[in-house]
Amino acid sequence: MDFCTLSLKDFLKKVAEKSATPGGGAVGAVVAALAASLGSMVANLTIGKKGYEDVEGHMESCLEVFESESNYLCDLMNRDIQAFDQVLSAYKLPKATDDEKNAREMKIQQALKTAIEVPFDLARRCKNIIVNVERLAKWGNSSVLSDAESAAHLLLAVHRIAKANVMINMKSLKDPDYGAWINEEMKQLEKQIDFSYNKIIEIIGKRNG
């Protein structure tokens, strides 16, 4: 099923059902896409406005990123659901013999890496979007700065969702080198996202007087 084609009401029903998918990761991808859409709105409401002629290039550049990320995140939502389903399927494999146990464990480890990589990718998307929201905070239409701030709040929350989903799958991972690399990358992403978030709040506070 392509969850991107569902109406909002149907998607909410799917999330509420007695099923593990779509879960937090998929919801996080949708929220990140909404943040990107808010960014697009701010950029569009700045382009062509009197007094903002000098920043149109910045706004057009931001708009390209927001539109691209929004489309990507829709696909990522579906991938998150598929990744979790793969983990569940791997755990259901037979384990009566040693060969079956080994094959099952290999499938579980492969599925776990996929289940880690999807929310890890979500964290990277948050970073890509929020650094451009920072540009909106600096140069965007002052009448819609609250929408840029709203996007920043959403992205901070989504990063926390992504981190939670990475960490829960890391618990069962048996590849310490891969785990160490993911941990280091997530730490760097967190620093970058937190830095941009704090700058956005600071800049908007100053612009609002």
Rank of each mutant, 00 (worst) to 15 (best):
Asn128Phe: 07
Phe11Thr: 03
Asn165Val: 06
Ile168Asp: 00
Pro22Leu: 04
Leu38Ile: 11
Pro176Thr: 11
Glu60Asn: 12
Ser61Ala: 15
Tyr72Ser: 04
Leu156Met: 14
Leu8Cys: 02
Lys163Asn: 09
Phe11Ala: 10
Lys171Asp: 02
His58Gln: 08
Gly57Thr: 02
Glu134Arg: 15
Ala162Cys: 03
Val65Ser: 10
Leu76Gly: 04
Val15Glu: 02
Ala29Arg: 03
Leu45Ser: 02
Gln109Cys: 14
Asn183Met: 06
Gly25Gln: 05
Leu45Gly: 07
Ala157Pro: 00
Glu53Gln: 13
Ile203Thr: 14
Glu64Ser: 12
Arg124Val: 05
Glu100His: 12
Gln86Thr: 07
Val15Asn: 03
Ile108Asn: 07
Ala43Met: 05
Thr114Cys: 13
Glu100Gln: 15
Leu136Pro: 13
Leu63Pro: 02
Leu173Val: 10
Ile203Asn: 04
Leu6Cys: 01
Ala180Cys: 00
Gly179Val: 01
Lys191Ser: 10
Ile130Lys: 10
Leu6Met: 14
Met77Gly: 11
Ile129Glu: 08
Ala111Cys: 10
Ala115His: 10
Met167Ile: 06
Asn102Phe: 12
Ala83Phe: 07
Ile108Gln: 09
Ala83Gln: 06
Ile200Pro: 03
Asn102Arg: 15
Leu88Ile: 13
Gly48Leu: 06
Ala162Asn: 05
Trp139Glu: 14
Asp80Gly: 08
Ser172Glu: 07
Ile47Ser: 04
Asp121Ile: 07
Ile129Ser: 08
Glu69Thr: 01
Gln86Ala: 15
Asp10His: 06
Ala180Ile: 01
Glu185Trp: 00
Leu189Asp: 04
Ala103Arg: 15
Phe66Asp: 02
Lys191Tyr: 08
Arg160Val: 08
Ala29Pro: 04
Gly205Met: 07
Phe84Lys: 03
Met170Ile: 01
Met167Val: 12
Asp99Pro: 01
Pro176Glu: 08
Ser61Asn: 13
Asp54Pro: 03
Lys13Cys: 00
Phe3Ala: 04
Leu34Tyr: 05
Glu184Gln: 11
Leu76Gln: 02
Lys50Pro: 06
Leu88Pro: 02
Asp121Phe: 03
Arg135Met: 15
Asp194Lys: 12
Ser61Gln: 11
Tyr197Trp: 08
Lys14Val: 01
Glu117Gly: 13
Asp2Gln: 03
Lys171His: 06
Thr21Leu: 01
Lys199Asp: 10
Lys191Thr: 12
Cys62Trp: 02
Ile81Ser: 04
Asp98Glu: 15
Ser143Tyr: 13
Thr46Glu: 07
Lys187Met: 05
Gln192Gly: 01
His153Asp: 14
Gln188Trp: 01
Leu73Arg: 05
Gln82Ile: 11
Asn169Ile: 06
